[in-house]
Write a protein that binds this DNA or RNA. Structure first.
Length: 573
DNA sequence: TATGAGCGT
């Protein structure tokens, strides 16, 4: 980074910090001295931001570009990076077998200056809707893998993006990499990372920003601790617990009785029963804290499950609130997965359904194969259908009487059994329009398999059904991705063959700018193709147009262009 | 609440 830019950034930091009320507030947040123009040379720490303008160590012109969408090609990167200066070469790294992009690339410039400029001007540029992350290529993994200088920031305001984070933290030293964690839609997850070149810079950043307000939010800034290190620390903490949680305590038990019960095992610093805020009545649980762990552990061993005034106590290590919540979340997730795998092999995906087919009719179609636990036609929400309905109502005015007697019912919740149907109120509510597919779940896999072989391609209301075993959402998703990748690969090869490109260059795609002399390329000015072929570009004469299109009205295979992926599975899978 | 990914010809 140039000195001029660095100064700008520092000034900007000072002003940003002021604007963002980083200077403390009534809530007791600490005050940050952002005055970097009046540094007391004897007080290094108070000086705060100590930016370094150190050039990167290798003095190469090779950039690593990460966080790329897998569809990003060399050509797209060339278009962007050549705006900065003369690009020597670009390579998107790909899996050796599947050729799927690994999500990162190298951009090599002819000069280091251009590399620096790209780092300053192109970092976090959106490519295919995702901000790219640019670093100097650092081939020595050891330098990257020790966590030196890596800082973790949480409780970030969602408005703080990569650039804002970078600008804020650049004042403390040279940043190798900086990122705000994002969800799939690109929204901030409220935490991020700043990896400095040196530990000193990281220490300065932590010292000066931890606990400060950024966009009204008090941020935590600390050393990045990898998951496994945090976990082992947590294990150690758990192994030395002194705090105990007790439940199933008779409500008539007094604080004193409760405390006495535990004092037999050692010195207790506190023993309290949870009480209702209004009535003051015991809520039947409480906490006991011992001075030392051994006594706490003995109390758990001796008292758990023991009778206390007529009730069997639960006594265990007390969890932190978030720990307990996480445990509950995990067990919920485990239950969900178990439920999903239970459907494996018994749940059928049925598509190309006529709009007239409702849950009831779907069940009837399949009931001869065995015992059906649920049959469900996926529908738009009534709201989505409302507009269309309204229009239809006008059209149907002539047939009004007919419509009024039509059976309507509300879309049912997931997992509800169909047996309710008979007793369901025939309320005159609008039913969402059928999405043309649904799910039929059998009791056992044999019934399901038989139904697939007998019902697939069966004509129903003049439409051939597509019937297959339903796939789990994640399985389906990865299969779709693989097929798209394979399709693009074929297109690339077809395009290359058409252009007369030697096969070997398809195996190791490397983009050289037009005009660059590279061995094996067609001479300039010949009839050679523009290089490289882009995924998704139309290929004259290539077979079949859009893959997955089918003829004579028969639906494509499940891996083709079926209903939108998000609707393929019932919500319980 | 939250603690990443990542290096080739």
């Amino acid at each position: 980074m140039s000195a001029a830019t660095q100064n700008t950034t520092v000034d900007q930091l000072a002003s940003d910090l002021n604007n963002a009320s980083l200077n403390g507030d009534a809530n007791g947040a600490a005050t940050l001295n952002t005055d970097v123009s009046n540094v007391n040379s004897e007080d290094q720490d108070a000086a705060g931001p100590t930016p370094t303008n150190a050039p990167h160590p290798q003095a190469s012109a090779s950039l690593y570009v990460g966080e790329l969408d897998t569809s990003v090609t060399e050509a797209m990167l060339f278009e962007l990076f050549s705006q900065i200066g003369s690009v020597a070469s670009i390579r998107v790294c790909r899996d050796a077998i599947s050729r799927r992009s690994l999500g990162y690339a190298y951009v090599n410039y002819n000069t280091t200056a251009d590399g620096e400029k790209a780092l300053e001007e192109l970092n976090y540029t959106l490519i295919k809707g995702r901000p790219c992350r640019i670093m100097w290529s650092q081939r020595d993994p050891a330098l990257r893998k020790n966590g030196q200088g890596n800082v973790f920031i949480k409780n970030l305001d969602v408005a703080i993006d990569n650039k804002a984070l970078h600008d804020t933290f650049a004042a403390f030293g040279n940043i190798l990499s900086c990122k705000v964690a994002q969800d799939e839609s690109g929204a901030s997850k409220g935490y991020g990372f700043v990896h400095y070149e040196t530990d000193e810079a990281a220490a300065q950043a932590i010292k000066h920003v931890n606990g400060m307000l950024l966009n009204e939010k008090k941020v935590f800034v600390g050393h990045h601790i990898p998951k496994k290190d945090r976990q082992s620390k947590f294990e150690e903490m758990k192994a030395n617990f002194t705090n105990i949680y007790v439940k199933n305590i008779p409500v008539e038990a007094t604080e004193e009785e409760f405390r006495e019960l535990f004092e037999k095992f050692g010195d207790v610093t506190s023993a309290s029963l949870a009480r209702d805020a209004e009535t003051g009545k015991s809520r039947g649980f409480g906490f006991v804290n011992f001075i030392n762990h051994e006594h706490a552990a003995t109390a758990v061993d001796e008292l758990n499950g023991k009778d206390f005034k007529g009730q069997d106590l639960y006594v265990g290590r007390a969890q932190k609130k978030h720990e307990r919540e996480e445990e509950l979340r995990r067990s919920y997730e485990a239950a969900r997965i178990e439920k999903a795998s239970k459907y494996q092999g018994v749940n059928l995906y049925v598509k190309n359904l006529d709009d007239d087919i409702d849950d009831e009719k779907l069940r009837e179609l399949f009931q001869s194969f065995g015992s059906i636990t649920s049959a469900k036609v996926m529908r738009d929400t009534p709201a989505e259908t409302a507009e269309a309905e309204e229009k239809k109502e006008k059209d149907d005015e002539k047939n009004k009487e007919n419509k009024d007697t039509k059976e309507t019912k509300e879309t049912k919740k997931e997992g509800e059994a169909e047996t309710e149907e008979a007793s369901a109120p025939k309320a005159k509510r609008s039913l969402g329009k059928s999405k043309g597919f649904g799910f039929v779940c059998f009791n056992n896999p044999d019934e399901a398999t038989k139904a697939v072989s007998d019902m697939n391609q069966r004509m129903v209301n003049n439409k051939p059904l597509y019937v297959a075993l339903a796939q789990r959402k994640d399985v389906r998703k990865s299969q779709l991705e693989a097929s798209i990748q394979a399709r693009n690969q074929i297109r690339m090869q077809q395009a290359a063959a058409q252009a007369g490109m030697p096969q070997q260059y398809m195996q190791a795609p490397m983009f050289f700018p037009p005009g660059a002399q590279q061995p094996g390329f067609l001479p300039q000015g010949g009839r050679g193709m523009q290089f490289p072929p882009q995924a998704g570009m139309p290929i004259p004469g290539a077979q079949g147009g859009r893959p997955g299109q089918f003829q004579a009205g028969f639906p494509p295979q499940q891996a083709g262009r079926g209903a939108p992926a998000g609707q393929q599975m019932p919500p319980n899978m």
